[in-house]
Design a protein around this nucleic acid. Structure first.
Lengths: 212, 212
DNA sequence: TGTACATCAGTGAACGCGCGTTCACTGATGTAC
DNA sequence: TGTACATCAGTGAACGCGCGTTCACTGATGTAC
């Protein structure tokens, strides 16, 4: 069956407009379903109102398209985290807000999150490079936020700032990915759970060693 | 091409032997490749030395087979964690060892780990129930280990034991799954990283709130 | 002890399906003269 | 201003592939008489 194509053909030189629409549609479909394997080139083409071969006018293959979506999501995550700490002076409070915002972003975009952080080890080299660059920007600003807490003397003496940043990241990633994957686990109420986990992870960076 | 079948036919009443061999082969193939989608019924049948329809003599469909593998892995994980704390009296030290053993297990069985904890939200209901039962056993003994630390007065006063257990779990899961998925990230040296993360997570349960 | 028969463990070939991708093409759009 | 032409944005049909699964079957194994 040939669906009626509602899309009007782009004018000369405006072919690139389709590229954005393809990324938009791919992003939306990845949101709706949970997995990149459940979104086919045909689905994306249908959603845009175009035939499958048109995709290949703008992307070398499916991976390249998913990569474009991925990059955009990293930028959104980065922005979301920066937003979370505006107007917050206390550097520990800022870290807590960033942590909660991270989990919030993951739970609101579970499929994007899955692709960004829960995929199989990457297949293609250039894929890795590009995603890594996008992700490293977000990671760098996270490290900077931890550094501010360290500079303010709020972390335990001798703290390795990068290691501390990784620790906080693994904590929020842990709860985010488990909530996404193990939806049927008997979790306690979500918001208090997330808040208490973020608090506990910060205590791990501020507190002295437990008495023996 | 018809490969020579080395396997000898089972005697009457011993057909169930094949079932175990199928699970073994499926497990091994899942170990080798990283993903359930990369292991086909045909692959498994070949590995066992049997034709694909034979699989269906013992499993209703592919999901049922993967489920059997999954259950066995949960049992192995459970045993690995119990092993890690034998002969350790200090309950905090026991928690630390269990945490490091958890990460170790995940990194040694990344594909099993992926299926157990990083899959898409489950499709079939009975699938969920069975896996949940196997997983809950491991979780219950984890909670018990945290309870022992609480009973010994080693956790901060007023600690919710289940919440604390979930916190520790999310920390070790976080680093395990990130190390598996983001193999190309510039991680620091593994063992010190894991040890420091486990230590930091325990501090989060023992320490008082940071001074304001 | 021999033979007919039921049962069980598997086989071989094929099914329909959806997928990513390719290829030759069409027809509208702009440009040169 | 008109027309030939190059270019560009797409189209339509098909490709080969591997997959999970089904179905009718075969032949060895044990059992009843």
């Amino acid at each position: 069956v040939n669906l009626p194509r509602t899309r009007t053909r782009a004018r000369r030189g405006e072919g690139a407009r389709l590229r954005d629409d393809i990324v938009d549609a791919a992003e939306r479909l990845l949101m709706e379903r949970g997995d990149e394997d459940l979104v086919s080139i045909r689905d994306i083409a249908d959603a845009v109102g175009v035939t499958p071969p048109s995709i290949y006018l703008h992307f070398a293959d499916k991976d390249a398209l998913l990569l474009a979506v991925c990059e955009r999501q990293f930028a959104l995550l980065h922005e979301h985290l920066q937003q979370a700490e505006v107007g917050v002076d206390d550097p520990l409070e800022a870290l807590g807000r960033r942590g909660r915002a991270y989990v919030e972003f993951g739970l609101e975009h579970p499929d994007a999150y899955r692709i960004m952080f829960m995929g199989r080890p990457h297949r293609e080299e250039h894929h890795v490079d590009t995603v890594e660059r996008a992700g490293m920007q977000a990671f760098a600003s996270h490290v900077a936020a931890v550094q501010r807490a360290a500079d303010a003397g709020r972390l335990r003496p001798g703290t390795d700032v990068v290691a501390a940043a990784i620790f906080l990241w693994t904590c929020v990633h842990g709860i985010t990915s488990l909530l996404i994957s193990l939806a049927k686990f008997p979790w306690p109420e979500r918001d208090p759970l997330i808040a208490s986990l973020c608090a506990a992870s910060l205590r791990g960076l501020t507190a002295a060693d437990p008495a023996a």
